[in-house]
């Protein structure tokens, strides 16, 4: 099946991506599992060299999107097109294991938990060197040199390579994870809450390190977080997720200035402001209710039970993600019709 080639500046193009978990009927030996639509009709592009931020509450499906893009899971429906290093466009959604193996060199992941993401029974040499060994890039003393180089790159001493992960702090472990992700010189790295488990100063150090590495190697990041001020600091563009749906996609500044989706407005109003005067005078949007269960989403727009602007149409008809303004996408019937408050108001 021929794949429609991507525009030259695009690295990833996700269209109508869905992932449903469970959904088994009751049998003799097990009970029925309800379908959980973890990701539902998600579409966005990631441009080469940019940092795309994906924000949302826990359970909104942002990690699942990243794992689908790296094909840690099988895709239920939709397409994921990726520009390979040789310039060819590949369709990842239906790729087989054999087809994926060479592509894995080009996309890597940094994990949230610096403890469980490093095998406690391997030395740094084995951990960071594993991707090189698996792909037959280096072995023996060459492998040792490469690992030493990678450790230096993330600010760890090369002598550390005979140590085990238990010798390191959370921030250092996260850098080991970064070194492992960099080992194969990928073009794309998905950072799944990569600094959420660290305290602020260490997180800032690691963010700066990641930005330096981005400049040095021309990396493209998918940065997943629930921390809006973090995402504002590092992302070029942002996608906002809610109950498995992408609610809004926009460039960082315009999203923070003038959100087009009521959910984004509510999220932004929760970002603390450094200026206490402005903080007090600011309009706060307090959301009613709870995040709905992904196995039983509300009818119509997933956000309507909590939306302060909800109209009758929102209860029955699910809106599409549409281009409300040039380069700005929102999944709302009234996108662009309301005057919503941004973070700078």
């Amino acid at each position: 099946m021929p794949v429609e080639p991507l525009a030259p500046e695009t690295l990833f193009s996700v269209r109508g991506l869905s992932k449903h978990f469970g959904g088994t009927a009751a049998g003799w030996l097990q009970k029925a599992k309800p379908v959980v639509k973890a990701v539902n009709d998600v579409s966005f592009d990631i441009r080469k060299g940019e940092t795309f931020g994906l924000v949302g509450e826990s359970g909104s499906g942002k990690s699942t999107v990243a794992r689908l893009m790296l094909r840690a899971y099988d895709v239920t429906s939709g397409s994921i097109r990726f520009r390979s290093d040789d310039g060819a466009t590949v369709e990842l959604a239906q790729a087989t294991k054999q087809e994926l193996t060479p592509l894995r060199k080009q996309m890597q992941m940094i994990f949230q938990d610096p403890y469980s993401s490093l095998n406690p029974r391997m030395t740094l040499l084995e951990l960071v060197g594993e991707p090189l060994l698996v792909h037959g890039v280096a072995s023996g003393s060459e492998l040792e040199d490469r690992v030493a180089e990678l450790l230096k790159l993330v600010g760890l001493r090369p002598e550390f390579r005979s140590r085990y992960p238990h010798a390191f702090s959370g921030g250092q472990r996260q850098r080991i994870g970064i070194a492992r992700a960099l080992a194969l010189k990928p073009s794309f790295i998905a950072a799944d809450e990569a600094v959420s488990a660290l305290d602020v100063s260490v997180a800032a150090q690691n963010i700066n390190l990641m930005q330096d590495l981005q400049d040095q190697f021309g990396l493209t990041y998918l940065f997943i977080t629930h921390d809006l001020s973090m995402v504002q600091h590092i992302s070029n563009r942002i996608g906002v997720m809610y109950v498995g749906r992408l609610m809004e996609v926009a460039a960082t500044d315009s999203l923070f200035q003038e959100p087009l989706h009521p959910y984004t407005e509510a999220l932004l109003s929760a970002v603390p402001q450094p200026d206490p005067k402005r903080n007090r005078s600011r309009k706060r949007v307090a959301l009613r209710g709870e995040v709905p269960d992904a196995s039983r989403p509300p009818t119509g727009c997933a956000f309507h039970p909590r939306c302060p602007y909800a109209a009758d149409i929102c209860k029955t008809l699910e809106p599409e993600l549409k281009e409300a303004k040039p380069g700005r996408f929102a999944r709302c019937h009234f996108a662009g019709e309301f005057q919503l408050t941004g973070a700078y108001a």
């Binding site: 894995r104 994990f111 490093l118 095998n119 991707p131 698996v134 492992r180």
Partner: peptide, 22 residues
Amino acid sequence: GEDYVLAARLTGASESRIIIKH
């Protein structure tokens, strides 16, 4: 379900390597 097993899978390690090494 461990992250490090997923990490190994994402680097392209084979199923047998994951079982034996991890």
